[in-house]
Design a protein around this nucleic acid. Structure first.
Lengths: 211, 211
DNA sequence: ATCCTATTCAAACAGGCGTTTGAATGCAAG
DNA sequence: CTTGCATTCAAACGCCTGTTTGAATAGGAT
């Protein structure tokens, strides 16, 4: 447990908001975890909603600290390698059960049921990655697809990663083995990569494809 | 509006539960939509939770009535055709904005944040479809994958469909065109099918593949 | 008309929520 | 020690929730 109440509230808020969502999270629960009095939220953040915004910012800071500038934005690497890195990176973050996992869960929540903070999140973390994929994918499928189809392909790829996070309850009932261990998650990442590269190859009509 | 209060409450409950989730939905809102008094829920369903269960059952009934026994379980068709039907079917249901869309949203909610009803839903609607895919996929990729990898592939495929439902808020901000019209959704389904068949081909080492 | 049952209704209830209060506490500076 | 300020605390506030109540209403059977 950190020393200052502000840090403790941010850390506790991250956990509770990630697990229960904004509305279902209670300030009493957050404060209990943080070991503070209820009114500490008002004192330091003025309201639950302001705390939530600060938790989001805190979450981004922590995530960027642990996963700094992903190598997938390194333009000197081959496009297919960059895509592989992106997929593995994304899946790991999504299924990470440490502090980092809360960040992923928090964002998954915002995507599915946006608060007013969604625009900020999209522009800050989603859009930059999205734009990189927008220039990456055409390098892998040639010029046959228009920009809308490129966006479709991008979602096909990230959807394969997201499903393992947000359908987790179903997965754990139907086939828990696919993500039950770090090795299993690793194999899942491999599978998504093989599957996606195969999918991209099917979209590229040129015979001597880069893939 | 239907005639009987029970029907009206079920229909209103479907809409409100699908849009707000179980906890955030209020009985006052549901009753207002249904045009009944608040205590009608107690009178006909004894509690909000019992109403929710009945809404789930009602939702399944309605969905099966509109999308009866999908052709994709027709074993006389080629496996690849059955997969195509499955993908198109699933995406259409997920993005359908009519009554049927509420059914899909309701289930998407249960998958992401299960109530006690999840087990029932999984065994009733998910598992049967999942088991069909479990026998379908091996026909398309040969015998090279163990059953866990088959389950991974299944999730890669359904993940591509699910992402367009549950990342909708993000899609509508980053690239709304991909699902902005029935034609666009149709093109998205085509893309998922091409992408998935390509992915499956990449997993099948045999030269003269069925794909 | 009278009774009985089914249904509707407005009002209130208890509990949990985020927020607010005002006093208690700690602690460094004068 | 005293002052002043930042911080903590228990308690209460007002609001909204699901639920409950008991009376009002309706409509068919006798």
């Amino acid at each position: 447990m950190d020393d200052k109440p502000i840090e403790r509230l941010l850390a506790a808020g991250l956990v509770v908001f990630a697990e229960r969502g904004f509305r279902e999270a209670t300030v009493r629960d957050i404060c209990a975890r943080a070991g503070t009095n209820i009114s500490a939220i008002r004192y330091y953040f003025t309201s639950k909603e302001m705390l939530y915004r600060e938790v989001l910012a805190y979450s981004f800071r922590e995530a960027d600290r642990k996963y700094p500038q992903a190598a997938f934005s390194d333009e000197s690497l081959p496009a297919s390698d960059r895509l592989k890195i992106f997929i593995r990176h994304l899946l790991m973050r999504l299924l990470d059960e440490s502090d980092l996992g809360f960040h992923a869960r928090l964002m998954a929540r915002e995507i599915a049921e946006p608060t007013e903070a969604l625009h900020f999140i999209i522009d800050t973390v989603m859009k930059p990655r999205f734009l990189i994929l927008r220039e990456l994918i055409p390098q892998l499928v040639g010029d046959t697809l228009d920009h809308t189809d490129i966006d479709r392909v991008i979602h096909c790829i990230i959807g394969q990663c997201l499903v393992f996070r947000h359908s987790k309850p179903m997965i754990e009932r139907l086939c828990p083995e696919v993500i039950s261990s770090p090795e299993a998650i690793d194999r899942t990442a491999d599978m998504i990569i093989r599957f996606s590269l195969g999918g991209l190859r099917a979209l590229d009509p040129s015979p001597g494809s880069l893939l």
